[in-house]
Design a protein around this nucleic acid. Structure first.
Length: 573
RNA sequence: CGGGGCGUAGCGCAGUCUGGUAGCGCGUUUGCUUGGGGUGCAAAAGGUCACGAGUUCAAAUCUCGUCGCUCCGACCA
């Protein structure tokens, strides 16, 4: 490919709306342009990267025995109503209507569509197991799209769905995909780590997320250096030691006017936040429940929902808080709430807590010297791990302190069980002609997000440093004297040689100064750069340098050895 | 959903407070120059100053409204 025949527009300045390096570089290197908020157009260079990632994903899926299909982006509402997700996905789904007033969604995922499809095709155990996948544009009405392709309204996703006759098969499929994912990300040049995650809406059982570690990541991940455990913070368990507080005198009221937050009250009273009990009123499936955690901790709503077995939990509105406790938010506590039947939960680290400060369930007042066991009605079984883990918490498996890092979620594997197959009646007949429900798994990879994750992980101060496997072109040939017949024909000859050898390359044949070409090549990040110039040719040859190497490592070879030298350089990447 | 910031040339921005001929850098075009890390010089093209209404002799600038973009927060009591 010739630079002058492509459509490449690099930018000197960072776009004003880009916050993180990968987003800035995505735009500056001319890989994509923003069309509207959360919507991007891929330029020729970006398209090539996307296609290369897609090809790797497809290859690994095929090797894992999955079958590629394509299902409609436009999905009828009736499918979503079968599982109730038409309502439960709520505003996250783009919904529209045709002229006959039929409802549709722009697919945010495709469990329903796939289950319905497979149900109609598979009827015998002889056809199982089967795994199908597609690489398709997905749509989600994000409340806040950000960071370019990281969180956008439209994104390319590979979604695979497995159907098995029995649990053992489903299990085997899960791990087959898990290992395929490891290979996909490794081949994209990414260090992605599998972490335990919460099933959320999709199912209750085993699930792992694959994360690319990066400070710009939106998820927190807890790691244990001791035993290697890794879990999303939403899921991360801790094993908090119970408090062993000394007995304290009876509790008494303290006036704390205008001090509502833990921060305000603790500074008002001059006491450490950890001595406070933070009490929050939640609505669990609409029913109020109070949750107490130490003042320097936050409630983990995912764990809370799991513990309660609730469909949804959210902080209660102020009216509910007032009715349940008798006070406004800021002054509530576990001691004698107005609603005596209010269930009160507490984090395990509060078991045995005494001498603590809580809200008084009376506006403007807190209580000091609260002994939870003595003063609050908390059932023994209602002490649980309910707080978000923080660095230094004990690992539940080996007891060593955990560390917290940030990650970008690029993939996730789920065991779905029969949630969808049961809803759709996706059954097969076994060898005794008995009807059985298929057991499912689903597996997603954010293809467009992966593109940006590679940039986030592979860049330096000069630009992107593409792994050879997903680079828009593997080789850039900087033609320094395009008007010199001899020089340009040498460059074009090498271009042909490389292309014949299956190495894609782009010749920068612009009438630009060398510095401009070097800067652009570094910015876009082609893995190998070849310089063909009059000066070099006269001096014996052409220059070859890897993007991740210093200038001093430049090799000069005669044109006849260029192909071998480029291949060698690429092999090193 | 709440709060802040911003909408001026393809991109990045100044000008707005204090109303009076629409500016700068990059990019683009042409010519010369230079030719190994974003050359230098000169000339040129390119803007209904987001949109609408109002105030005024006069509005990018003041007022009101609308739309869009963006950041932070989303009840942690």
């Amino acid at each position: 490919m010739r630079w002058t025949k492509s459509l490449i527009a690099t930018l000197r300045d960072n776009p004003g709306d880009a916050e993180i390096d990968s987003h800035k570089l995505l735009m500056r290197a001319g890989l994509a342009r923003k069309t509207a908020a959360g919507l991007y157009s891929y330029m020729p260079l970006g398209m090539r990267v996307l296609e290369k990632i897609r090809a790797i994903v497809r290859d690994e899926m095929d090797k894992a025995g999955a079958l590629e299909i394509s299902m409609p982006i436009l999905q009828p509402a009736e499918l979503w109503r079968v599982t109730g997700r038409w309502d439960s996905m709520g505003p996250n789904m783009f919904k529209l209507r045709d002229r006959a007033e039929h409802d549709y969604a722009l697919g945010p995922t495709a469990e329903e569509t796939t289950t319905d499809l497979v149900k109609g095709v598979v009827s015998s155990y002889r056809q199982l197991p089967v795994t199908v996948y597609q690489i398709q544009w997905k749509f989600r009405d994000e409340t806040r799209p950000r960071f370019g392709l990281m969180r956008s309204k439209e994104f390319l996703m590979k979604d695979a769905y497995s159907f098995d006759a029995d649990a053992e098969g489903a299990d085997a499929n899960y791990w087959k995909m898990y290992h395929a994912y490891e290979r996909v990300f490794a081949r994209c040049g990414l260090k992605a780590v599998p972490v335990q995650a919460d099933g959320g809406d999709m199912g209750d059982s085993l699930t792992h997320e694959f994360h690319v570690l990066a400070d710009a990541g939106e998820d927190g991940i807890a790691f244990c250096e001791g035993c290697g455990a890794a879990a999303n913070l939403e899921k991360a368990e801790r094993s908090p030691a119970p408090a062993q507080d000394a007995p304290c005198p009876p509790y008494s009221e303290v006036a704390t006017p205008d001090a509502k937050t833990i921060e305000q009250v603790s500074s008002f009273m001059g006491l450490d936040p950890s001595l406070f009990v933070k009490s929050l009123v939640y609505a669990a499936d609409g029913k109020p429940v109070m949750v107490c955690v130490p003042g320097d901790r936050d409630v983990n709503e995912v764990k809370l929902r799991r513990f309660l077995g609730a469909g949804s939990v959210a902080l209660a509105d102020f009216g509910t808080v007032l009715r349940a406790t008798g006070a406004n938010a800021g002054f509530v506590g576990p001691v004698a709430p107005a609603d005596g039947s209010l269930r009160i939960l507490a984090d395990s680290s509060l078991k045995g807590a005494a001498g603590r400060i809580t809200g008084a369930n009376k506006d403007g007042f807190h209580l000091k010297n609260v002994d939870l066991a003595r003063d609050a009605k908390i059932a023994d079984g209602d002490y649980a791990d309910l707080a978000i883990a923080v660095a230094g918490d004990a690992c539940p498996h080996c007891g060593r302190p955990i560390t917290i890092k940030r990650g970008i979620e690029v993939g996730q594997v789920f065991k779905l069980g029969t949630k969808y197959s049961a809803a759709f009646g996706a059954v097969y007949k076994n060898d005794k002609l008995e009807e059985k429900t298929m057991i499912m798994g689903c597996y997603g990879i954010g293809v467009s997000r992966t593109l940006q994750a590679v940039i986030e992980q592979c860049h330096d101060k000069d630009g992107i440093v593409w792994p050879a496997s997903v680079a828009p072109y593997q080789v850039a040939i900087d033609l320094l004297d395009p008007k010199d017949e001899k020089v340009s024909s040498a460059a074009f000859a090498l271009e042909k040689e490389l292309e014949d050898a299956g190495i894609d390359c782009i010749v920068d044949d612009r009438d630009e100064r060398p510095g401009v070409k070097f800067k652009d090549a570094d910015l876009i990040g082609f893995p190998v750069r070849v310089v063909v110039g009059a000066k070099g040719l006269a001096g014996g040859g052409i220059e070859i340098k890897r993007r991740d190497e210093d200038k001093s490592k430049t090799r000069i070879v005669p044109p006849s050895e260029a192909l071998a030298a480029v291949s060698a350089a690429l092999a090193g990447r």
